[in-house]
Nucleic acid binder design. Structure first.
Length: 488
RNA sequence: GGUCCCUUCGUCUAUCGGUUAGGACACCAGAUUUUCAUUCUGGGAAGAGGGGUUCGACUCCCCUAGGGACUGCCA
């Protein structure tokens, strides 16, 4: 018999106490495969696992499923770790690397072999392929002839895989927390390969052994594993282990309802960061995708933890809706700290190769405060703050040049003096501008566009008073002076 | 082909046998306005189809259609 619960092998810097302490406590895990980056669907799976663990006062673990040595890369592991960190999803304890536990997996297989729950399959690949075709034609599941043959009949030293000896009758039930009771006819479940011919454990075996050893009580994962859950149940039974609770999340589709792919704009969480989304916004949006709490749309992490329950997750797949993500992101930009946003905007400018003079930087947070209402992403925030970051003298765009007639120049000259005596605050400057228009007996339209152009150089800018404040008195008046002294 | 899952406004969702089927995003119209945006007001918009069960079905059951997953010595 196997050890009930061997120590979990941790990552490089092991030594932290094993997270599982209370047998009755909930333990969830996120188990991504480093054969690609962290997908947005995976990110949501991680989020739900974390929310459920936090909600129940349980533990949330991370396991890297790197049993596919060919396709797993260290770079992808790092991308996944970075992605989770960026999103603000922090697992408890060190991540478990599945590959490092291969011996333990083989040990479990040895036990199954010994108990008759598994068998050695010497079927050569070509023959297997033929059987696969036959089985498909007959509408049944693939079965190896070696299931009931004596291994001693195999040629000496012939390569073999080890397969699960699945029962041939009865029902296998997956009591899913989201999908409900799903019944499979056991004979429809095939004999999974447990160990490859090179002795390497397969995914289905490894998940079961690791989930068991890690004390996972609730397996919350993508819908695409629902069929696997039945077959994994058979492995649990063969090992004599308790089957965990399952919760299969419906997948996230692209806006057109098709499986999410590159043509939908973004899949990896890193791309969402590059597109100017805030992690808290993405978290909120992701939580609303497939789950909800009444009419609540915008909620804090604490509220999400308090309200979340896997059983409330919707059964149908959801589509990624950029418009709604934008809206939520806009909300979080509005409430975000200006210095933080300024740094984010600056990062965008730098990545765009926009040179910004150091003396303009201190004004950025103030500019951010005045324009952030209109930004849905930090990319847009960068667009909206560009006017404030330009260096004098500004290159005026053609439209502004055209507006600077002798008459307009005269108006701006007089306005400049009025502004210079005003307190440098939005209400006061607004009053000054209105007062000026009134005194001149003209509408703001007569000079407003020109003033904006002079202040911004043609880049998008907020309303006049806000633009003036965003720039600061010296810079604003200086820009006006520059324009007025410019040779016609 | 086989097994399994899914189906309420364009999208995300509420409803958990009795509601004028609610909200959000998007969209349309109007108001505000010195650009863009913001803001405010109003509006259109849904239970895939067909059978049952029931006094009464979006809600429970069955069938059909459509979508999806799995069917690998990938995960």
């Amino acid at each position: 018999m196997l050890r009930a619960r061997p120590a979990v092998s941790h990552g490089p810097c092991s030594g932290s106490p094993t997270p599982m302490t209370d047998r009755s406590a909930v333990v969830t895990r996120f188990a991504p495969s480093p054969t690609g980056s962290l997908h947005i669907g995976g990110a949501r799976t991680a989020l739900f696992n974390q929310l459920y663990a936090r909600h129940t006062g349980g533990t949330f673990l991370l396991r890297i499923e790197d049993t596919d040595r060919e396709r797993s890369t260290q770079a992808n592991v790092q991308i996944i770790l970075d992605g989770l960190a960026w999103l603000g999803i922090a697992p408890d304890g060190e991540p478990v690397f599945q590959h490092a536990r291969a011996d333990r997996h083989r040990e479990a297989v040895a036990a199954m072999l010994a108990s008759g729950g598994a068998y050695r399959d010497f079927t050569p690949p070509e023959e297997l392929e033929a059987e696969r075709e036959r089985a498909r034609a007959e509408g049944r599941v693939v079965r190896s002839a070696w299931r009931d043959r004596d291994p001693s009949e195999a040629p000496q030293g012939a390569p073999y895989t080890v397969r699960l000896k699945a029962p041939l009758s009865g029902e296998t039930v997956v009591d899913d927390l989201i999908k409900g009771r799903v019944v499979f006819q056991t004979k429809e479940l095939d004999d999974l390969v447990l160990l490859r011919s090179d002795g390497a454990p397969t995914y289905n075996l490894a998940v079961v052994v690791d989930d068991h050893d890690m004390g996972v009580t609730h397996v919350i994962r993508g819908d695409d594993h629902l069929n696997n859950a039945a077959r994994q149940t058979l492995i649990y039974q063969a090992l004599g282990w308790t089957v965990p609770a399952f919760a299969h999340l419906p997948l996230i589709h692209g806006p057109d309802g098709a499986k999410l792919s590159k043509r939908h704009g973004a899949q990896a969480v890193g791309e969402f960061a590059d597109l100017g989304y805030l992690p808290e916004a993405l978290r909120n949006y992701l939580a609303r995708l497939g789950w909800g709490h009444g009419d609540d749309e915008i909620f804090s992490d604490a509220e999400a933890v308090a309200w979340f329950d896997v059983t409330d997750v919707v059964k149908a797949p959801a589509r990624l809706d950029w418009a709604k993500l934008n809206h939520i992101n806009q909300h979080y930009i509005r409430v975000a700290d200006n210095r933080r946003l300024a740094d984010l905007a600056l990062e965008v400018h730098r990545s765009r190769g926009v040179h910004i003079a150091g003396d303009r930087l201190p004004d950025l947070p103030r500019a951010v405060a005045l324009v952030k209402e209109g930004a849905q992403t930090t990319l847009q925030l960068a667009d909206l703050t560009l006017f404030a970051l330009k260096s004098r003298p500004l290159a005026l765009d053609a439209k502004t040049q055209g507006l600077l007639t002798a008459e307009t120049r005269a108006l701006l000259g007089r306005l400049r003096h009025r502004l210079a005596t005003s307190p440098w605050e939005v209400p006061a400057l607004e009053a000054a501008i209105r007062g000026f228009a009134q005194a001149e007996g003209i509408g703001i339209g007569k000079f407003g566009a020109a003033l904006r152009g002079v202040l911004s150089g043609g880049a998008p800018a907020p309303d006049l008073a806000s633009s003036l404040v965003a720039l600061g008195k010296d810079e604003a008046l200086g820009r006006i002076d520059d324009a007025l002294s410019q040779v016609q």
